[in-house]
């Protein structure tokens, strides 16, 4: 939306306002209640994984994910996809993010592993457990990353 902040209802009386001095209480200019001004989150880059992408840069993702919102918020968007097709068709329970929001598409089958990509592959429980173990210290994590990318 390009705005510096949005007002929200809530949060006043919670500790969020203690740890986030940038969340400011403002008066509702059209009513009597207090609101909280939340500064815009502006990611420099969104990396997202899609089911499919087409030659116009449109990408197909899941209706349960927040990718469309993230794609509209980020300065640049790189979408990896399981498949590249000539032209995407609408599908039940999936949404198409228009190519105007996408800077680059990369054909990367398996790009969501070790998490799931529904319809392509399931979550790899064993690999997630290995990751959790490795992530306990910087040293074991560095070794994990080397193996994972090898």
């Amino acid at each position: 939306m390009g705005l510096p902040f949005l007002p929200v209802r809530g949060l006043i009386g919670t500790d969020y306002l203690r740890i986030r001095p940038d969340f400011q209480i403002i008066k509702n200019p059209y009513g009597d209640d207090d609101l909280v001004a939340i500064p815009a989150v502006k990611p420099d880059l969104l990396l997202m994984h899609a089911y499919r992408a087409d030659r116009s840069g449109n990408v197909l993702t899941d209706k349960r994910e927040s990718d469309p919102l993230l794609a509209r918020a980020a300065e640049h968007v790189i979408a990896t996809a399981e498949e590249i097709v000539p032209a995407l068709e609408p599908e039940a329970d999936k949404v198409i993010i228009p190519g105007i929001y996408i800077d680059a598409v990369v054909h990367l089958p398996g790009g969501a592993k070790p998490t799931a990509c529904p319809g392509y592959y399931d979550i790899q429980d064993e690999e997630i457990r290995r990751y959790l173990q490795a992530a306990r210290t910087p040293e074991t994590f560095a070794r994990y990353l080397e193996e994972f990318l090898a």
Binding site: V8, R9, G10, K63, R64, S66, P68, L69
Partner: peptide, 22 residues
């Protein structure tokens, strides 16, 4: 219900549930 395809009456993720709640 978050993550349930059958019980997810939105097309744009969690933001829609939060907006509906607001």
């Amino acid at each position: 219900i978050w993550r349930f395809q059958e019980y997810w009456p939105f097309t744009e993720g969690m933001k829609e549930m939060f907006d509906l709640g607001q």
